[in-house]
Amino acid sequence: MPDLLHVHIQSKRYGDRAVLQDLALRVRAGELISLVGASGCGKSTLLRLIAGLDTDFQGDIQLDGHAVRGITPEIGFIFQEARLFPWLTVAQNIGFDASGGTRPDARVSALLDEVGLGGYEDALPKHLSGGQAQRVAIARGLFRRPRLLLLDEPFSAVDAFTRMKLQDLLTRVVSHHGVTVLMVTHDLDEAVVLSDRVVVLDAVPGPVCDVMDIALPRPRLRDDDALTRTRTTLFRRLHEAHAL
């Protein structure tokens, strides 16, 4: 498969402290990649650079062969918190884009159905549970048809059962929309269940520490022994890489 994203960060600093250094990453089209690594190793920073939220770095980022610097509609972002605008309805939140129109959109309803929240168009965010809010955030992330979707620990704030449901939902919508995904996670189970590849970042700024292919067939069942073995392998490799 062709590469969709090329990232090469020479250096990203916060003041005197280097956060990322000589880091290169390739993401193939249609792939789902998890980024794991110790807290503070720069995973979230890397996502923010790719998203264009932070342009203060040395290096270059190419999407489909074209350099990107700054925010582009081709790259979407789903944050750790749902970050819905509390004064807008669910439908308005999903359809929130640069056009500024609040017209009822058939796509919004279709997306809501897809994330299992059909009929919630006019609900306000304050009436949603954490899991529901994150479903809306996923629908919003897909609304602008991004080619690459970045997720920053998207399910870390919900309970374990809701997390599993949301993971399954993500797998479903990602394959349906054919979007490429780069996701930061702390959860090894999540990384194994969802990803095609797991990229391990070093705690010290530097090149990618390790890349592990998750060659398990889909759909992946959580009680599959192969899954458990893969998870154990990932755990050991993380341990060897001192990334834990």
Binding site: A51, L53, I71, P73, G76, F77, F79, E81, R83, F85, F96, D97, A98, G100, R144
Partner: peptide, 16 residues
């Protein structure tokens, strides 16, 4: 700031 980031990702101009 978090809401502002969402708006920036949506490509809003500064007046919008």
């Amino acid at each position: 700031r978090k809401l502002v980031e969402v708006a920036r990702m949506a490509g809003l101009s500064s007046t919008a």
